[in-house]
Nucleic acid binder design. Structure first.
Lengths: 299, 299
DNA sequence: ATGTTCCTTTGACCTTAGTCAAAGGAACTG
DNA sequence: CAGTTCCTTTGACTAAGGTCAAAGGAACAT
């Protein structure tokens, strides 16, 4: 891993310092009106309803503390609680109309604050700012995603593959038959690898590597959750799979793609893959690629 | 003023929310170690020494609260206080070596946090992020600067003109004689205008408008503090001065520039000024420009 | 010199934020 | 169905953050 140069660290910290000075302080106190911060945040987080358990985890609060705050909001008529239908240990919280008003007011104030901040810029400059913040957010999100190797039969792996299958079933004109997916044992242990990308502990992408023949691997099922697209995550997954291939002694990797996945093809080309003739009988494939990973290896 | 489209407001708020979620929470608790936040912030703010009064204003704290916190830090051996030489009502606080260590540790932790955040990006992506954050900060700073009309003899006006004079004295090969500056009454009331740009209540730029002859104004002394350059502030000042000109019934404005101020010349051209022959006997001027502000006026 | 303003300290208080442990009811496990 | 785990509530505390008013000393204005 290349070291992070101080230039970038400094730039990042400078920006944070500036932004917190400029808005962070105002933000909380101003937006929460005269309501305590904790309550304001809780109100906001309840949103369209959530169980206390969920809220506890999301906000990282002590159970007792949360219980009391919820009761306080209830006493103010902003929140209504009820018992979960199926699991009566769980308590659900939802906003009353008054609570919704309150959150709406919070949002209006935040908007007004942002608007006041942007007002003195020209429309061009606002566009430039929006673009810059978009880029920054995209990169920070990408930086926050961790990729881990999991067993092909793990719950997260299955969840990703299910989402992947549903996704391409909708995109391939001929649909997609889930039995064409890799079997868990093909992508686990010495046979291959399965990578899952996590954003804030939620799986948002995956990729599989299996062995085609000695020294030759195949990359399959590179998928990114719709909400995590356009971040550059697919490249990172591909990168991770290639590293896995090398570790598995697979100096050459191949992959195929469906005709409709044109962005994927462009990505593979950009990552050093070259088109080759059909190497399998995958009915969904229209293009085949390969990439040599280890130098000097003679086949 | 053009309205701010919701797109930009939303983008800005989304970014803020994201960043606070991602780092804001960690930041404070993590960086302050086991020291209370208030104390950690105070320590950081004391930096190379400051009076309690200054700190009170900067941090927006209650006098009693601040007094107690300072004493607490003093008791921990992190801060030393003394009485101001000239005004013995004021109390000065400065860091002891131990306090400096503590702040150093805070900084190291903040750096480490930033570094961990950036580590998983490629060097290219880090560069892109740094650039985006730089752009965002530049624009936010610019948006936070307010331009006000002040009297030409006011303290802020004089301070800006002094800085301007010193600045160009250093840049003009032949130096600059401050008696060539506009007189206060030329740029005040009906005769003209003096604008000062404030960033967080500190003057960071200025510009003057005076009447050359009926219907013709002259823009002079457009200056931006070195730390506020490259934000686009000069343009905003110029803009403000042109508006003042129109309000003063000056449909045509002229200005001159010194040969060495090439960026300024480029800016004037970009803002619609056209070069004209010498119209004054300013010994420092090498180029003369003018711009018509009101349509249809016949001269 | 005298009244006013400014800065800091101190005492008295209050709210918010957060922790810990005990306990009770519901669901899950074998 | 017995034991365990999970979720919530309650009581008992503590620390931190923050406010208000009174008071004393220093500087400033006239």
């Amino acid at each position: 891993m290349e070291p992070v140069s101080t230039e970038h660290v400094t730039a990042f910290r400078r920006f944070n310092r500036y932004l917190t000075r400029r808005i962070g302080v105002l933000d909380d106190h101003y937006l929460g009106q005269d309501r305590p911060l904790g309550q304001a945040r809780l109100l906001y987080e309840i949103g369209d309803g959530a169980s206390l358990r969920e809220l506890r985890v999301r906000l990282g609060l002590d159970a007792g503390y949360l219980s009391r705050m919820t009761r306080a909001l209830e006493a103010q008529g902003l929140v209504r609680t009820s018992v979960h239908h199926e699991d009566s240990r769980l308590r659900l919280a939802e906003l009353t109309p008054a609570g919704r008003d309150e959150v709406g007011e919070q949002n209006r104030r935040a908007d007004a604050l942002a608007e006041r901040l942007l007002r003195d810029l020209s429309e061009d400059q606002r566009g430039e700012l929006t673009a810059a913040l978009g880029t920054a957010r995209r990169l920070l999100r990408l930086a926050g995603i961790v990729i881990e190797r999991v067993h092909g039969a793990s719950a997260d792996a299955r969840a990703c593959l299910d989402a992947y299958a549903a996704d391409i079933d909708a995109r391939f004109p001929e649909g997609f038959d889930p039995t064409a997916l890799v079997r868990p044992e093909e992508v686990s242990g010495d046979a291959g690898a399965f990578l899952v990308a996590y954003e804030e502990n939620r799986p948002v992408g995956c990729g599989a590597l299996r062995t085609l023949e000695p020294g030759v691997g195949e990359i399959r099922h590179v998928w990114v959750h719709p909400e995590a697209r356009r971040l550059g995550l697919a490249r990172r997954l591909l990168d991770g799979l290639e590293r896995q291939a090398v570790e598995h002694g697979l100096g050459l990797v191949r992959l195929d793609t469906h005709a409709v996945l044109t962005e994927a093809q462009a990505m593979y080309r950009a990552c050093g893959y070259t088109q080759i003739p059909r190497y399998d009988d995958n009915v969904y494939a229209a293009h085949w690629f390969e990439k040599r990973l280890t130098d000097g290896a003679v086949r």
